[in-house]
Simulated assay, not measured.
Amino acid sequence: MADNLQDQLYQRIREGLLAGRFQPGERLKIRDLAAEWGTSPMPVRAALQRLVAEGALEGEPQRSVRVPPMTRERYQNIFQVRLGLEGLAVELATPRLTAANLTELRECVARMDQAIEQRQVQAYLDANSQFHLHLYSACGNPVLLRSIESLWLQVGPFFNRLFTGADLSLRLNDFHEEAFASIEAGDAKAARQAMEQDLTYFARFLLNLLDLEPGQR
């Protein structure tokens, strides 16, 4: 039972990191999380330590844990790796997708459009992470998928810190729509190209915002 609870807490925190629900530099207090989720500190501590071991969180003195801060250099390094890995994942996944997969991806694109129109940042980030990770999960290569998820755990918190409702550009979903059209047509090369364009546009968008933050110029 304890292991099952630890797994549930691990998944909850992990999903929060992937979807940008935590902030870079944010300290995660074990007792506060335990109180919020109605459990003892022990399974929370164990779940956090698993994420520290994966590089998604950082351990600090006195057993505290925080979300790693993000710098321009660190984001650029992660982006370079993401571009190659995620492009490959899209190309591998495209011929393997089922009708159910396509329905899920189509719904994610629609939710992103709606979130942009309504200026709902977290709804956009949730649908964005679901679109990408659902697509990549069909790549058929578990090593590739684990590598991608590890990178997303590191950049997810950065997305939310830099977004405000006013920052939701209407272009943010263009490349998702292009990628999905290519996926639906079975054109793996075109789908990869559209996804790489999406990642590049998104990176430039975030880096431009990061340049406006104090201490990052």
Rank of each mutant, 00 (worst) to 15 (best):
F175G: 01
L5Q: 15
G16I: 00
V90K: 01
P43A: 06
L105M: 05
N141V: 01
G16L: 09
Q120R: 14
Q80W: 02
R96D: 08
V65W: 03
R146N: 11
R63E: 14
Q130N: 13
M42W: 00
Q118D: 10
A123P: 00
L33I: 15
S137F: 06
L48M: 10
R106Y: 02
A2M: 11
Q120H: 14
P95I: 02
L105V: 06
L133I: 10
Q80H: 06
W37F: 14
R171S: 11
A127H: 04
L97P: 01
N208R: 11
D211Y: 06
R63Y: 01
M195K: 09
Q122V: 02
A110M: 03
E36W: 04
L207E: 10
A203Y: 02
P41T: 11
M112W: 08
S182E: 14
Q154D: 03
T103Q: 12
L51R: 03
D187T: 09
Q114K: 10
L83N: 04
G20I: 01
Q130R: 12
F79M: 09
R27D: 08
G59W: 07
Q114S: 09
N173A: 07
R217K: 06
H132R: 06
N101S: 14
P43H: 00
R74Q: 13
R204W: 02
R146W: 01
E36Q: 15
V52K: 07
A181F: 03
E213H: 02
L206C: 04
L144M: 06
D126F: 02
G140V: 08
P95V: 04
Q193W: 08
V81E: 15
A166Y: 05
L209M: 14
A46K: 08
A110F: 04
S40K: 13
L28Y: 04
G165W: 06
Q216V: 13
L170C: 05
R119T: 07
E15H: 09
G25C: 07
R82E: 12
P214S: 07
M195N: 15
R217Y: 09
M1V: 11
E184G: 00
Q62N: 13
A2H: 15
Q130S: 10
E149V: 13
A34T: 07
L97R: 01
G165Y: 01
E91A: 09
S147E: 14
N4P: 03
N4A: 12
L88K: 13
